[in-house]
Amino acid sequence: MSGRFQVEIDPAYCKACRLCIQVCPKKVLAQRADGKAIVENPDDCIGCQLCEWHCPDFAITIKGEKKNG
């Protein structure tokens, strides 16, 4: 089941608000030293896209087989 989805975060657009980290049900994301989001546990991603939809800065893209649009 692992690695079905790829979480891509563009640090140029991330503003370190942490919303994606909060909404992720699988703790895939974490904060790096400057506060911006990084993908810590990529294999745990279930492709729910909550992080992408909650990112106010269009910095996150979930790729792979999608359940929703």
Binding site: K15, A16, R18, L19, W53, C55, P56, D57, F58
Partner: peptide, 17 residues
């Protein structure tokens, strides 16, 4: 982009929707 909205502002979420 990036837009002028503050970190964590909900406006980007609304715009995405």
């Amino acid at each position: 982009l990036p837009h002028i909205w503050c970190p964590g502002c909900g406006h980007g979420i609304v715009l995405g929707a």
